[in-house]
Design a protein around this nucleic acid. Structure first.
Lengths: 206, 206
DNA sequence: TTGTGTTTGTACTCACTTTCACAAGCTCAT
DNA sequence: ATGAGCTTGTGAAAGTGAGTACAAACACAA
C-alpha cells in the first residue's frame, strides 16, 4: 500500500460510484473487474481508479483485476456502509414519498427508520410500511442511534428543521431543499436541488 | 473585463448557485449584493465569487457590489436561461410526479412541456396539468424545439430511453436513474442518484 | 476638493487533482 | 521453467482550480 498520504476529497466522492459499479457489473459476487472495465462503465480513466483504490489498500491482483465481492466489501467498510445506517426522512410530500419507496438506498446499506411530517392530515398514515410521525416529536430520535437525515421539505422550514435534527444528534444530512443550511462544522451536509443541477445544461447546448 | 481566459468547468457549475442566491437574497429586484454577502449565503469565499463573475464581464461596482436584477439577468443570459427552456419528463412514477409539481424549475426558466410513461394504466391521466403520453411516441418531440429531458425511470430502461431521446434531438439530460448513460459527445448529461450522493455521509461521521 | 471606508477586478502564488509512464507482479500456455 | 501478455500500484509531471494581496474605483461626509 502507498505510504500514507492525505486522501483527496474527490476520491471520497468517487467511492460510492465504485461501490455501485462493483454491485452492478459484478453480478452475483465471484469474478474480477479491471480498472479498465470500471473506467469504461463510469466514464473515468483507469489510472484514477487504481490510485483512488490504492489510497485504502492493495485490493487488486496484478494481471487480473479487483475481486468483486471482496473489494465491494472493503469499500463498504471504508465508507462505513458495512453496517446498516439508520436515517430519518423529514417530509412526506411527493418527493419524500418517492424517496421512501426508492429501493436504491438499500444497496448502500441505508435504512429509513422513520418518517416525519408536520401536516396533521398526513400524521398517522403509512408510506413504505412506516407510520408518518409528527415533526414536533423529532427530538425523540435522540434515543435511537440515528445519525443521518434526509430533508425533503420546502425551503422555508429547512433551516429550523436542520437545527432540530442537529440537536437530536444527527451528524449527516442529505438536503433536498433549495437552500444552504447553517450547521456546526461537525455536521456534514450534501445538498441537492434538482432544478439547480439542471441549470448548467443549456449552457453546453450548441 | 479580464483578458480572455478559459472558463473553468467549476465556475460554470457555480453559476446556477449565484443565480439562486440573487433570486433569494435579492428580494424583489432593486439593490445590491456584495461578494461578501453572497459568499456568506453560499458558503464560498468572496474572491472566488468575484473571479467567477469577472470571467463573463464587469458586473459589479467597486465600493458598492453587484446590482441584483441586472446581474441575475446577465447570469441567465450566460446560462441561456433567459429564454424559457422546454424539457420533457420521462417517467410518471413517484419521482416523476414529484418533479412535475416541483416549482423550483420555474426559477431557472425550465418549462416541463410534456410527460411520458410506458405504463398503459398511466397513459392519458394528468399530472401537474399535463396529460401523460405513451413513451412509444417520444420521437414526436422532434418537431417541437425541445432540447432537454429529465429521466425519472428505473435503471433498466434508462439507456434505451436515452438513445431515443438523442434520436429525437435532445441535447441535455438530467438523469435520475442509477446508471451511466452512453451518449454522443455533443449531448451533456447530469446524473444524480440520491442514494449514491448520500453514500459519503457516514464516512465523515465521527 | 480631499479623505475615509468600502468593494470590485485580477496578477501572483499556492494547493489540489489528474494523467502519464513504467516497474513489479500475476496467469497461463508451452 | 520460461516467456508472452495483462494489470496493478505509484512516483513524477502536467493540468486545473482556489486563495492572497493589492491597486483601482466608487460613495459619502466634511
Amino acid at each position: 500500500m502507498m505510504k500514507y498520504r492525505r486522501i483527496p476529497e474527490e476520491t471520497i466522492r468517487r467511492m460510492p460510484r465504485y461501490l455501485r459499479a462493483f454491485s452492478t457489473l459484478g453480478g452475483h459476487g465471484r469474478g474480477f473487474l479491471s480498472s479498465r472495465q470500471l473506467a469504461d462503465y463510469l466514464h473515468l480513466n483507469p489510472p484514477q481508479i487504481r490510485k483512488d483504490l490504492s489510497y485504502f489498500g492493495d485490493f487488486g491482483t496484478r494481471g487480473v483485476g479487483y475481486p468483486v465481492s471482496q473489494t465491494a466489501e472493503q469499500i463498504r467498510k471504508i465508507l462505513k456502509l458495512d453496517v446498516s445506517q439508520k436515517a430519518v426522512l423529514i417530509g412526506a410530500g411527493r418527493l419524500g414519498t418517492a424517496i421512501a419507496s426508492y429501493p436504491g438506498f438499500a444497496i448502500f446499506g441505508f435504512n429509513i427508520a422513520a418518517i416525519f411530517d408536520n401536516a396533521p392530515a398526513k400524521i398517522g398514515k403509512k408510506i413504505a410500511g412506516l407510520t408518518i410521525q409528527d415533526t414536533a416529536r423529532l427530538a425523540a430520535i435522540r434515543s435511537g442511534d440515528v445519525h443521518l437525515a434526509i430533508l425533503a421539505i420546502p425551503g422555508e422550514a429547512a433551516q429550523t428543521c436542520a437545527d432540530t435534527l442537529v440537536q437530536a444528534g444527527v451528524r449527516g444530512i442529505l438536503n433536498l431543499s433549495p437552500c444552504w443550511l447553517r450547521v456546526p462544522k461537525r455536521v456534514k451536509i450534501v445538498s441537492i436541488d434538482l432544478a439547480m443541477e439542471m441549470g448548467t445544461l443549456p449552457y453546453y447546448i450548441k
